[in-house]
Design a protein around this nucleic acid. Structure first.
Lengths: 230, 230, 230, 230
DNA sequence: CATGAATGAGGATTCATTCAT
DNA sequence: TATGAATGAATCCTCATTCAT
């Protein structure tokens, strides 16, 4: 149904600057744009309130179109949610792929990868929040996405390559499982965003300031590097 | 300990009048039990479906009592949710406190602490799921719980003690921040439960088998130990 | 779900006269009555506009309760429709059963049966209209009613008895199939109500006046009697 | 017979301007054919689901053209419905007229007429279903068709002729009203198709098999013949 | 304490129809 | 003529919550 060529127009919703012309409620007749705009708005709504908490009316209101268009393109609230989910994963994959770490020394490459991941999560909290939402729903929607699983293996391949080079070089332990390593990186990098609210409340600590984030980023990077080091 | 455990009957109680008289005798049902039963059922419902996804009707149905009782004890859906949240944190605190690590060598104590945390999350997925749900809601409800923050500092104190002993002993680095360490342990131990669904779907790996859990537990423990090691 | 003891309170909706007390929007707390009232109103709406043409809002408006109650008792528009359908068939069965034809001479009994059926259809157009609506929907809803089919066989049994007596008496042919006979009676008696609008428009004839109905009733009765006569 | 068959382009046309010029050449698609195709598809849709149950989108989808064309030719859903209704009646009239019964002996002619009608209904269930749908809507649309009523009187005239010949011949009763007779024939012949679903469900009988249909046809024919017989 | 009935406000979804190209 | 995009106004349905008993 409909085209899926949605041109992703940046991760940060509201900040998109120049958008050529008239904004609100202009009949676009550009399906890709309409679609992308809906997804952009919906991403924020779903990541902020969850699947059941999100309101189609609210999404429609923040959109350049009407509620009816949401159903025209996505068929249902869940259909829209799935599209949002897919889009989130597509974006992170695209960006992760753009990292070129092969030329760098393994340890440095790994550090860069960790820092990049850490920064990405902080810059794009919608992503990890969507992941949480989807996990609350037992991953039932991601399981329905046709062309997702394979693609993300790039992240693993990249790690495997780094580790292999590190081992060859003698700086890394040989018994590192790339998937396990990826899991640890993900866990450590997403916690700061995903669990920010409860953790900071309970332990009365700041987790969002630049300083706090920077310190945590180094701690996380350090932890990963020490883990793989020989 | 008759009926005084129906403690915080709502932060902004509007109508609940004095009800400690004649009525008491008609039914012998233990209010504590009723309350506990509701919380038990609600915990599962909220952790499975989130705050907005959970249905009061469903909770009432699974309960030994009726919907009316839920409102009688908790005043609103949010009131019930808060009670559930509080209960979750109370339980984990109680259990964490029961760990006596002071007698053990620091490294061993830390390892035990990590393994314990890891196992607890696996055995009680409701907890981490509730934490996720609460974070989706920006921690606004946990912030309203009157007597929570202080209590959990025990976990930090315990870690601080272990690290101090490790440093004194010469087996641990001196520049370890206990809160940062706790964050890492939490992140690594909760990821397996919290992100299980998306991660296993995307990377087509098993995360729930005994073997997978055991391997991951050791990897996590290893990571923490290497991190603090001198 | 809910009780199905709905006390049928007369076939003609609007005409019900004395109803004890206050009418509009009084909290009844008498589920049977609420249910019956909803069915009464819904019967008319569905028979007038069909399943898809009927509006839940309209039904609710004409009811003593609210739209919400419709869903409370009947779960969905289709659920309400099914309840209405069942009620229609229950009523006609009840009334048909009340006819005591065994004491009368066969020919006379049959004539009375035909006239009664003819008059019933005219007096209760909702019934045959509901049957038409249900046939437009391929009988899919009546097929879902749990306890219907058996019961209506009384109508057949009654006819079989009449014919048997007529045959024994020598006034009726022996090769009359009671189901086939019932079908003819139904066809002839329902046409006047069911196809009234198109037929009278096309042939520019009056079908609703007392005289027209009376003449048609005799023609139909005559046709049936001649058919079975020896 | 190029484009003049797009006859009654709406009884209350609001906007349709003169469109008989330049455009004609761009596409060679035969408008008559397009119209006929739409009507064909719509006939089935309306007769299957009723006026309110039918979906313009579905009709458009099953059509060789687009939704826009439906509105171009028929102006509205009701306009299309009316066109379908008219087409149904036109077809049955055309076919009924093709029966040449004047040469046959009256009783035989009548029998043939009944059998023909019976078979036609079975072969064209859409017709009787449309009639039912229209009656559910109180015949309000057929009343709007400009040139229908007169035409169908042929059916009555034909019957009148047969009966007159039968009376003259001495085989038929003199007091037969042709309209009343037509009504009976219609009732008996349409019931098998129109009420098939409910009747077969309630009485657990088969009404669609060849054998069942044949038996019923003879019963119906027999009933009509006995009715008119002297 | 306990229950089933009742409800208003809101939320997802659908539909006939029109517009831009 | 023809098409896909777009839409407002319903329309069905749900939910937390309250009332009568």
């Amino acid at each position: 149904m409909a085209s899926d060529s949605a041109k992703p127009r940046g991760e940060g919703a509201k900040s998109a600057p120049a958008k050529t012309d008239a904004r609100e409620k202009t009949r676009t007749n550009d399906p890709d744009r309409t679609r992308a705009n809906i997804i952009e708005v919906a991403t924020h709504e779903f990541s902020e309130k969850g699947l059941s908490g999100a309101r189609i009316d609210e999404i429609a209101e923040r959109t350049h179109t009407s509620k009816r268009m949401i159903y025209y393109y996505f068929e249902s609230k869940e259909g829209l949610y799935r599209a949002v989910l897919e889009d989130c994963y597509r974006r992170i994959r695209t960006i992760e792929s753009s990292l070129d770490l092969k030329a760098k020394p393994p340890m440095e490459a790994l550090a860069q990868r960790v820092r990049f991941t850490f920064d990405y999560q902080i810059a794009n909290p919608d992503f990890i929040r969507m992941v949480m939402v989807e996990n609350i729903h037992h991953g039932e929607h991601i399981a329905q996405l046709p062309n997702l699983p394979i693609t993300n293996l790039e992240a693993i391949d990249s790690l495997r390559d780094i580790v292999a080079r590190g081992v060859a070089e003698g700086t890394m332990r040989p018994d590192i499982d790339p998937i396990d390593l990826h899991m640890s990186i993900s866990a450590l990098c997403s916690f700061n965003v995903g669990n920010r609210h409860t953790f900071s409340t309970i332990f009365k600590v700041d987790m969002t300031s630049r300083a706090a984030a920077a310190a945590r980023r180094e701690s996380v990077t350090d932890m990963i590097l020490r883990f793989v080091a020989k």
